[in-house]
Design a binder for these strands. Structure first.
Lengths: 231, 231
DNA sequence: ACCTGAACACCGTTCAAGT
DNA sequence: ACCTGAACACCGTTCAAGT
């Protein structure tokens, strides 16, 4: 990873080191690299959302020409794949020492997954269309092992993994997309009421205003786990 | 809805009715309308996928100028919203006569939902980013009523709805995105094995090759329902 | 090995104008 | 009320060229 330099220092070093950075004389940016590109792409996505990521904007932010990116990266799809997988890197404990609470471990793995994605809401809507990168596979691997330890039989393992994956993805995607629009939800509820009578049930229960996403997530997850690995 | 006419008939009527369709003399297409635009957008999405929908291509297919679309439709986002909601129109029985099998009704509602979306795989990856149209609301309403009849208490209704929604969305999105790439999955499994050792658990269980999506869907759904509405 | 600008074939949408 | 073409400000990517 390139270290950050202060503006003053970089200006000086730029003036002095004309021969040291011959191909990069007009800029104070460190050299281009796959890592820098991906990190900057994530920044851009966080700041501007899915549509905000543009090869041209990305190059701008990196202080390089647009076409320079294509040396390090296949195309825009590739950038999406890399950004998504980088955001899903697992940083938690990969093997809690002698844990006895296997069910708690499963919950932790899944909640960490959800939390990671919610930190970058674009990742949720991106995931369904992208390839499985190494970090995603790593999380699936971890989930598989934890489920085995929790007592899920080998024959049921894939069903269990996919059920939980589906649930987590659905919950995360829903939450990420609905949470963006708080007053939209209020507006939606009002619209519901103006159509008075067409949707009486969900109007009465204030479905669109309900926002205990975390609670609902945990509750549904518990039900699933009860079925998958009876305690 | 504009009625379909045969080519011959429309050519004749075009020649005769110069004064009847004065603004549309040069084409044998019926007049533009919101409905036609949406229907054609769905065709285009089915044929070419998400990236295949272009205002220009859409206009081409409709035999009109690009800008004519904007009289009937706000912008491209609007087209996406309309196409998505149109695909989610519920056509099943809205009130089965005196059904006693309430749990079966819930399952039917959710499976019909999933089936509708899988008929148009782009809808799955589109949904998380779009507004709730009338047909989506209608399905939520139906689900809510069915759950009530199945014995879910009012206080638990929203949690139940969102849990099921999340599960169905996750399962559908996953299935729609993974199913597109059959030999990709085989390639992924091979890649796994070439990395031999990094992901032993999911390699051993052939997770990426497992494709009993429907079975997994039903199983997980049953577990959820067991928790939400004990029989 | 790494970076670049010009050029191509596209986009969505504004606007002013037509009937 | 409905449709249109020209024009604008963008896109992603190929290519041939630079160091």
């Amino acid at each position: 990873m390139a270290a950050k330099r202060s503006g003053a220092q970089s200006k000086r070093s730029q003036r002095i080191s004309g021969t040291l950075q011959p191909t990069h004389a007009a800029s104070d940016e460190p050299a281009l690299s796959r890592e820098r590109i991906v990190a900057t792409a994530v920044e851009l996505l966080d700041a501007q959302g899915l549509d905000g990521l543009t090869m041209r904007r990305l190059a701008d932010r990196l202080g390089s020409g647009v076409m320079s990116l294509y040396w390090h990266v296949d195309n825009k799809e590739d950038v999406f794949d890399l950004a998504l997988d980088s955001v899903l890197e697992y940083r938690g404990p990969t093997q809690t020492v002698e844990s006895q609470d296997w069910r708690g471990d499963v919950v932790h793995v899944l909640e960490d997954w959800r939390t990671s994605m919610l930190r970058h809401p674009w990742s949720a809507s991106l995931l369904p269309r992208r390839a499985l990168g190494p970090n995603i596979l790593g999380r699936l691997e971890l989930l598989s092992k934890t489920l085995s330890r929790a007592g899920v039989a080998d024959a049921d393992l894939n069903v269990a993994i996919w059920s939980l994956w589906n649930y987590v993805m659905g919950a995360t995607i829903t939450r990420a997309s609905f949470d963006l629009s708080d007053e939209d939800r209020a507006a939606a509820q009002q619209r519901l009421e103006r159509l008075s009578g067409r949707y009486p049930a969900i109007e009465r229960s204030h479905l669109l205003l309900d926002d205990d996403w975390d609670g609902a997530f945990r509750k549904g997850l518990d039900f699933l786990l009860d079925g998958l690995a009876p305690r």
